[in-house]
Simulated scan of single mutants.
Amino acid sequence: MRRTPRRRSPPKRRPGGGRRPSANAAGRVPSAPRRRLAADHGSRRVLLIGDAAHVCSPVGGQGLNLGLRDAVSLAAALPRAADAGGLAAWRRARRADALGVLARTDLATRAWTLRSAPARAVRDTALRGVLTTPAGRRLLAESVAGPRRKPRDGDRRTLG
């Protein structure tokens, strides 16, 4: 009896045309942290906010939070836009915030996707240690949530 050669199926394609990476032994598809930051937050007539200005790993929904902070801060900066450098200060502040979020989400993604068993053991031991104290839990929550916005005069406080 003669064996027929086994046909290979064509590689799976992503909607963008790239090849899909193969799954590892655990069945997970490895991926590098997604991280992009626009060179500038816009020009004289166009301003970039949200995902148009920055893309980060989806850890903790920080990309959405960052986009919302962009919109809120732009709304506050627009009345002062006619002043010399009014939007330049906004651009600098948004870039600094975006860089901080990108660094935190990149670190978190790398920590949660460790492949080395010893490295995962160190991560898990450190995390257990942090979570045993109220101060550690608060510090971890604050680092994941991002920077706190300083209340301004006239801000209304809502109880929810």
Rank of each mutant, 00 (worst) to 15 (best):
L99Q: 15
G60M: 06
A82V: 00
V59N: 02
A77L: 02
A53F: 04
P79V: 04
A71C: 00
R92N: 13
L66Q: 00
A98V: 03
R115W: 05
R69A: 14
N65T: 10
W90T: 05
S73N: 01
R94W: 10
C56Y: 00
A81K: 12
G60F: 14
R80Q: 05
G67D: 00
A98T: 10
R92I: 07
R91D: 14
P79S: 10
A93E: 15
S116N: 15
G61M: 01
L66C: 02
T109K: 08
P58R: 09
D83H: 12
L114G: 11
A75H: 15
W112N: 11
A96D: 15
W112Q: 01
T113H: 13
G67T: 07
V122T: 00
D106P: 02
W90A: 01
L102V: 11
L74E: 00
G63W: 05
L78P: 09
G60Y: 09
R115N: 09
A81Y: 03
V59D: 04
T109R: 08
A121D: 10
A93D: 12
L107A: 15
S116A: 13
G67A: 10
L114C: 03
R92F: 03
A77P: 05
R94M: 15
R115M: 00
H54N: 07
R80W: 04
G67W: 12
A76W: 02
A71Q: 11
P79L: 14
G63I: 04
S73Q: 06
W90Y: 03
A88W: 08
P58E: 12
V101G: 11
L99N: 07
R95L: 13
A84P: 14
V101R: 10
L87K: 05
R92K: 06
R110P: 07
H54V: 03
A117K: 09
A89M: 10
C56Q: 09
A103E: 12
A103G: 15
A108C: 05
A52C: 03
A119P: 10
A119W: 13
L64D: 07
A81M: 08
A103I: 06
G61E: 09
P118E: 05
A84Y: 02
W112H: 14
L102A: 04
L87R: 08
